[in-house]
């Protein structure tokens, strides 16, 4: 079971703004869905490898060869806001990026 507090933490992690009623609804849904998932806990998978990829393909590469880029205009047209050749967002305070 997850708590209402957990729901809020998850929402922050996922960058979602939840209103109180939405948080409550999701809390209920998540508990019902995650409760259903409980059935997996009974399965013995101690000797089973996880399947992260299908059909066992391996070693797919491309050569280190240049191909034409998109024109900068393509990016700027898509961007909700830009300045010169840059995409613009409200100022980022924490300068660390990844932790």
């Amino acid at each position: 079971m997850i708590s209402n507090e957990d729901v809020k933490k998850l929402a922050l992690l996922a960058r979602l703004n939840l209103s109180e009623p939405e948080a409550q609804r999701l809390h209920k849904d998540l508990n019902s869905i995650l409760g259903y998932m409980e059935r997996l806990q009974k399965v013995d998978v101690s000797k089973v490898d996880p399947m992260s990829h299908v059909h066992g393909a391996t070693n797919v590469f491309r050569e280190d060869e240049l191909k034409p880029s998109l024109p900068v205009e393509a990016a700027l047209e898509l961007a909700p806001d830009h300045s010169g050749r840059f995409i613009r967002v409200p100022i980022v305070i924490d300068q660390g990026g990844e932790n």
């Binding site: 998932m37 997996l40 806990q41 998978v45 089973v48 490898d49 996880p50 399947m51």
Partner: peptide, 15 residues
């Protein structure tokens, strides 16, 4: 581990 990894392992069983 309890959810994602477990599900990937059961996925193997289903396959």
């Amino acid at each position: 581990d309890a959810f994602y990894l477990k599900a990937q392992k059961v996925r193997t069983l289903i396959a």
